[in-house]
Computed example of a mutant assay.
Amino acid sequence: MTENNGVLGENPASRSGVERVVNAPLHTAYGEFQAIGYLDHDRGDEQIALVHGDLGSEGVLTRLHSECLTGDVFGSRHCECGDQLVFALRAVAAEGSGVVVYLRGHEGRGIGLLAKLRAMALQAQGLDTVEANLVQGLPADARDYGVAAGILHDLGVVSVRLMSNNPRKRESLLRYGIRVAEEVPVLIPPCENNITYLRTKRARLDHRLPHLDAVAHWS
C-alpha cells in the first residue's frame, strides 16, 4: 500500500469497483481510528471504513453498519441503529483491533432517506416496517454488501467475527468471498418506541433478537 499525503495509490479494491482514495487519522470518543475513504464506482457512493489497530487477516472483529441519519445522528428511538454503531466502535476499541464499515446508500434498508421518512409516517399510522416499504412499491430490504466485501478484501481481511443480528449479512459476505468465523450479537435493550419495529425485524426479516422474549409488557 503506497501513500502520499494521505492519498493512496491503486489497489486491488479498485478492480472490483471500489477505489481506496484517502487514509486519515480520526480521533473519536471511543478511541483512535484510521478513517479510510473509498469511492464506489458502481453506485457513485463515498464510503468509509474506520480501522482500529492492526487488523491481521483472520477473525477480524467487524461491523457492517448501514447508514441511518435519524438514528446515528439525531438519536432516534424508532430504531436501535445509533446504539449499535456506538456498541461496535466501543467493541473494536476494547478488542484492540477491528473495523467498522459505514455503508452509505443503505438508508432505510436501501430505499433512501425520503422513502424511509415516508415509511416512518406509515408506521405511525399502523403499518409495520416491512409493510411500509412494500406499500410504496419498494423492497423490504434493498441492501447489497458487495461494496463492504470489496473494502474488506482491500484491507486484507479474509475472515471476520461479524457484529450483527442479521443472517443476510453473513450470507452476502460468503457470496463475496469473505468467511464469517463467528457472529457476534449486538443486542441493544429495546424501548417502548422501538419494540414493535424490532419484533417485526425478528418475525419478518429473520433478525436474531432473543432478548425480546424478556419484554412482554409493551404491546
Rank of each mutant, 00 (worst) to 15 (best):
T2A: 11
E3Q: 05
E3F: 00
N5E: 03
G9P: 10
P12G: 02
R15T: 15
S16T: 14
G17D: 06
V18S: 10
V18A: 13
E19I: 12
V21W: 04
N23A: 10
T28V: 11
A29F: 09
E32R: 13
E32T: 13
F33H: 07
A35Q: 06
Y38T: 04
Y38Q: 05
L39S: 07
D42W: 04
G44T: 01
G44F: 08
E46G: 06
E46S: 12
G53D: 05
G53H: 09
D54A: 14
G56L: 13
G56H: 11
E58I: 09
E58M: 06
E58T: 08
V60T: 05
T62G: 04
R63G: 12
H65N: 05
H65F: 08
H65I: 07
S66A: 07
L69Y: 13
G71S: 01
V73S: 12
F74L: 15
F74I: 05
F74M: 14
F74E: 08
F74H: 08
G75K: 09
C79R: 00
E80N: 14
Q84K: 06
L85C: 01
A88C: 03
R90D: 15
A91F: 01
A91S: 15
V92K: 01
V92G: 03
A94Y: 05
A94I: 07
A94H: 09
V100E: 10
Y102K: 09
L103T: 05
H106K: 09
H106T: 06
E107S: 12
E107A: 06
E107L: 07
E107R: 07
G110V: 02
I111K: 01
L113A: 06
L113E: 01
L114M: 10
L114A: 13
K116S: 09
K116F: 11
L117G: 02
A119R: 05
A119E: 08
Q123P: 08
A124N: 14
G126K: 06
G126F: 11
L127W: 06
L127I: 07
D128S: 10
T129W: 04
V130K: 09
E131W: 07
E131F: 09
N133Y: 04
L134T: 06
V135S: 11
Q136A: 07
L138W: 00
A142W: 01
Y145W: 10
G146A: 12
A149E: 02
A149D: 12
G150D: 02
I151M: 15
H153D: 02
H153N: 14
L155D: 10
G156T: 06
V158D: 12
V158H: 14
R161I: 03
M163S: 09
M163Q: 11
M163K: 09
P167W: 01
K169C: 02
S172Q: 15
L174Q: 15
R175S: 15
R175V: 15
Y176P: 10
G177H: 13
R179V: 11
A181R: 13
E183Y: 01
P185H: 07
P185C: 08
V186Y: 02
I188D: 04
E192F: 06
E192N: 04
E192V: 14
N194M: 05
I195G: 11
T196W: 02
L198C: 08
K201F: 00
K201W: 00
R202K: 14
A203M: 07
R204V: 03
R204A: 12
H207N: 03
H207G: 00
H211K: 02
D213W: 01
D213R: 05
A214I: 01
H217W: 12
W218Y: 11
